[in-house]
Structure formats: structure tokens, C-alpha cells
Simulated assay, not measured.
Amino acid sequence: MSGGSWTDLMPRVVSAAVMVVIGGAAIWLGGVPFAALVILAVGAMAWELARMTAGPGTVPATVIGLLAAVAMAGLVTIPGYARLALLLVPALVGSFGNRRDPGLYVAYALLIMLTGIGLVLLRELGIVMILWIVTVVVTSDVLGYFAGRSLGGPKFWPAISPKKTWSGTVAGWIGAALIGTGFFLAGYGGISLIWISVLVAFAGQLGDIAESAIKRRAGVKDASNLLPGHGGVMDRFDALSFAVVLVMILLFILLPQGFVGG
């Protein structure tokens, strides 16, 4: 273990502490404060995605970010199913011009919007649900970071994410299982919550790899420098995005009876 591998730890810790305070307060309050934070995050991620995939004649990234934020605001305020058309706004508008990897852009732009509306809908189901998802993803990420840096070993997918190791990946699964066990023992779900937590953690890890692929194709280290020590908002929400979409599929399609309550 070289000392240089930990040089980003302090800014990561400080920045993470600020995010925990702001995010924790928004989750606790729910309603407008939580929706407002989601809207800001969605706008920032859409801006970052548009910047990384920009090409000749494409709509400016700032415009895409603003459109995404406005569309997200409409999704959380306009009643009825017609509002779901707003999910497509950033993807469709951003597809104009010669954008690099247009298919990848459209898919990820839609994912960003689904993440936003998913977070709002899941928070409306109760604070336990959103706390479980966030705790699983954060625990998996933190344990994966420290285990990967400390233990090293074979790479999980070196062609796309050179830093991600099997030791970190498995550590993330173990952490997720422990979180699922904790919520189960606290009476907030059945025993299936343990393996579902692992599945959610794995989805988050795939989200991290997917964003790494986008950055690799764009030739950048981070999506942006909005978050000191963490890069961009996409760099922090990539895992949560895939996790939220998976939970939405499980909750509303495959397991409509639910698996987290209270």
C-alpha cells in the first residue's frame, strides 16, 4: 500500500461529511426540501453527461442541465401520467447535433431522469425505504473503497474500471448483506431483504462501472469537479442511479407486495 493511494482521502471525507449533512437533512424532511435536492442533482448530472458527450452542433450542456432540472420539477409537481413524457426531454433535446455516443447519451439521460423520479417516489413511501437504499449503496461503496485500496488483488473489470478489484466488490456485497440483516432484525422487512440488499449493491457497482465507461470514452478522470475529492455529481450518484432503478423494478413490477416497510 503506497501513501499516494490515500492522498484523496481527506478531501473525500470532508466533502462526504458535507453531503451527509445536506442529504440527511433533506431525507429527514422529505417533501419540498428533498425534491429540491433531487432536482439540483438531476440538473447537475445531465449537465455533466452533456459535457462529456458533446460534439459539433450539440445543444450546450448548460441548456441540457437546465432542461433536465425543469423537467424534473414538472415530474414532481404536475399530476397525472402525462407528466411522464417529461422523462424524455433531456434525452431527446440532447440528441440533436453530432453527439458522441448518441445511443449511450440517450440511455443515460433517461436513467438520470428515472433516478430522480424514483428517489422522490421512494421517499414518499417512507423514510425507511430511502434510508435503506442509501445506506446499502454508501456502505458498499465505502467498504469497497477501503478493501480495494488495502487488499488489492485481481481487477473486477480492468478494461473499463482499472481501479475496481474483486476484493472491493465482495467487501461491498458483505457490507450490503450486513445492512440488510440490520434492517431485517429491526423489523423493517423479511429475511429476503438480505439478498435483495446484496443485489442492490451489485446494481450500484454496475452503475459505477457504467459511468467509468462513459468517462473512459470521453477521456476524463471525473464527470466534473463540483464535489471536491469526489469529482462530479455523476461520480457520486452513478451507483445510486442503478440501485434506485432496480428497486423501482423490484418494488412496482416483480415484488409489488414490497420488501421494506415501516
Rank of each mutant, 00 (worst) to 15 (best):
S224C: 00
G23E: 05
A109N: 02
V106C: 01
S197T: 15
L254Y: 10
M19H: 08
L9I: 12
V260A: 02
D141A: 07
F34C: 08
R99E: 13
L251K: 08
G74I: 13
A85D: 12
S161P: 00
V120F: 10
G148W: 09
Y105A: 02
G23R: 05
A85S: 08
V18T: 13
G74P: 11
F156L: 05
V200W: 08
A82H: 04
S95G: 15
I174P: 12
V20E: 01
P228V: 06
T169L: 09
V137F: 07
G116T: 00
A159W: 15
M129W: 12
N225W: 12
A171L: 04
L151R: 11
G180K: 14
A201Y: 05
K163E: 03
A50H: 01
K221Q: 14
V76M: 00
L227E: 00
N98W: 14
R123S: 06
A109M: 04
G94S: 13
G261L: 15
F242M: 00
L40G: 06
H230W: 03
A201I: 04
P33E: 11
S140T: 07
A36F: 08
S241Q: 03
A159G: 15
E124C: 13
G207Q: 00
G97C: 07
T135G: 14
D222G: 10
W132T: 10
V170D: 05
A239N: 01
K215A: 04
V120L: 14
M234I: 01
G187L: 04
I196P: 06
Y81W: 15
M19D: 07
V120Y: 09
L104A: 12
G57I: 00
T169A: 07
G187A: 07
A41G: 11
A35L: 08
S2M: 14
G148K: 09
F237T: 00
L86Q: 03
W173G: 04
M72L: 12
S192Q: 15
I127V: 13
G231W: 08
A85I: 11
V120Q: 10
K215S: 10
G231N: 04
W28T: 07
V38P: 03
I27N: 15
V14A: 08
V136L: 03
W195H: 13
L75G: 01
V200L: 10
L206S: 04
L143F: 11
I39T: 05
V260C: 02
T169E: 05
V244K: 01
G23P: 01
L254T: 13
L226V: 08
I130A: 06
L254S: 09
V20M: 05
N98V: 14
A159E: 14
G57Q: 04
E48P: 02
A82N: 11
M113E: 01
S241A: 06
A25D: 13
L122P: 11
L67E: 05
V137S: 07
A61I: 06
G187M: 06
A218T: 02
G94V: 02
G152C: 00
A68I: 14
A26Y: 04
I174W: 10
K155A: 09
A44Y: 02
K155E: 08
S224G: 04
L75E: 04
M19L: 11
